[in-house]
Design a protein around this nucleic acid. Sequence first.
DNA 1: CCCCCTATTGTTAACGTGTGCATTCCTGTG
DNA 2: CACAGGAATGCACACGTTAACAATAGGGGG
Lengths: 341, 341
Amino acid sequence: MSVTIKDIAKLAGVSHTTVSRALNNSPLIQEETKERIRALAEQLDYTPNYNAKSLVLDRSYNLGLFFTTLSQGTSAGFFYEAIRGVNSVIQDRYQLIVKGIDDYTSFHSITKKSFDGIIVVSQSDNDQPIIEHIAGKGIPLVVLNRPVDTSGVLNVLSDEEQGAYHAGCYLIEQGHRRIALIEGRKGFRSAKHRQAGFERAMAEHGIVTPATYRQPGLYDLESGHLAMQKFLALPEPPTAVFCCNDEMALGAMKAAYGAGLRVPRDISVMGFDDTVFAGYVTPALTTVRRPIEQISKEGAMRLLGNIENKLHTTERVLLHTELIVRESVQALKAEESGRDA
Amino acid sequence: MSVTIKDIAKLAGVSHTTVSRALNNSPLIQEETKERIRALAEQLDYTPNYNAKSLVLDRSYNLGLFFTTLSQGTSAGFFYEAIRGVNSVIQDRYQLIVKGIDDYTSFHSITKKSFDGIIVVSQSDNDQPIIEHIAGKGIPLVVLNRPVDTSGVLNVLSDEEQGAYHAGCYLIEQGHRRIALIEGRKGFRSAKHRQAGFERAMAEHGIVTPATYRQPGLYDLESGHLAMQKFLALPEPPTAVFCCNDEMALGAMKAAYGAGLRVPRDISVMGFDDTVFAGYVTPALTTVRRPIEQISKEGAMRLLGNIENKLHTTERVLLHTELIVRESVQALKAEESGRDA
DNA sequence: CCCCCTATTGTTAACGTGTGCATTCCTGTG
DNA sequence: CACAGGAATGCACACGTTAACAATAGGGGG
């Protein structure tokens, strides 16, 4: 069928070994011979059979990029930025294999032979089994986006607690006191951290958040919509709502409009993530930027470093979030701030 | 290192040939022997070495999913839906390898050995060379999202001309006569079709679109914003603007707000694509839904059909778009419609 | 002039799997 | 009883590549 090193060898009048060495630029081969063989290979449009290479070299040239789920709960922007980031790093050396963890019925097929390394973009504690499986098989691994304690794995993520803390502080600085929270999807670690950061900000400023000022959310538009409706039905609604992601913030704003209110004049809304469209909704959303693309770049680079130098670096890297101030938060005058009790 | 069929053979007291046949459920092997070997394989946690299989069977178990670009111009939602659609079809049989076509410096490495089949999600005429390369190598291929005339390739896409035609008709039905167009990114075939459909609608209803009612666009928010600003600066601005995608429509609405206008009361805006957030902006965007996920599902299924039955089906499949009526288009009373000249 | 060392190339086996062809054993039939 | 034929299994090789080891030639030093 296709051209092999043996074909080249025959034409060059050398052994296939010599061809192999020449094409791999081995110092054993005379420069002149190399040139001749390279020219011949070029001319015959030779492409190495990577399956054969893989078999003998025990490398797959595959990099796995695993998401918690492809079918639900992952936002499109998040997904896109993660792939972009990784892709920008791997050059031609690896193939990028994208998978949803929830598509696996068994991890049996995940072996050292089939993946040179794996990047898990984790959004849920439920990813723990696969992480341990991969680590257990000794496959180089980096977990992005979620802190993980398994030993021997690289871990790159943003400091979301800090990000949510800054968001909370910002709302307080703007004069808000009646501040409500729409929580993230249960089971997603990010939900915990964002909530914790928010609470720390409240606590440090002596602000009490009543139970009625908290609503669960699913990270989607509908749940943000619903939560906001509940807040607005309260006898004393909040003046500001911190949403654990942008999509819920959009849903929340929508609910405010539905109730005849205007954002931010009547109620302030803040999101988290700085999704691509956050700057273009009306009003433009004030939010917190998680550097997903940077995280995935950083993670991919460190993973490649481990693979190629056969290291087992195992550090945790925290990247900074950034407060993005736009238009959806109103500065309140002191007398309007309505401190409760 | 890891368990091979030879290890199993030794333990079972048979030859590795028998093990191979047993695990592949060959009718040559006694049922009893098969059972014994399967049990042993299970117990030893045997995983076949796919590199070795690939080498001898001449199959890679890889499916390529190629996008025109990963780094620019592809919308996140589009990207996400395409991967989701394909992923939902391929089950466990194939690995999905995601690539940006513009990352390739040479197509040399794209061979029949490394991909059992390839799905090209094409957004530009510039993809033609890679499509011809793939087809030329005899690799099973399906091109999604863009019509392609190369012989011997499957082609699945939405009828965008028709979609834009319906959009244009809808605006006219709502009483609009001064209708402007923000065009798609130059070089993207979709831009041509959407524009053509729009023009057909105008022509069939005898409506003339002056040159000032057309602005180029790049499929991004900024260009939509800019284009709308130009329309609004005209002595007689349009009453409705058809944008060749949703992102530009968002930008356009933003520009309208910036000029102190309200959508749809003062000006109507229509998009194309029905991006995930289209329903949640304010006002919710009236648009045309391209069934991307369905396209990619359909394409993947047909590709797999070709691969597994060794066929070379080569049809073009057009899937219907759907008009999604929301809130961003105002119905005009006859006397307001301001027919020109 | 011989031997050793080095530079260059070839021989052969190995990676793990699948398959054409032999081999063995058994059963039925003439 | 011999023999055909089928069922079950093994042998040996192939896939395309790399690498340990062998082989050859040439050059320099004694």
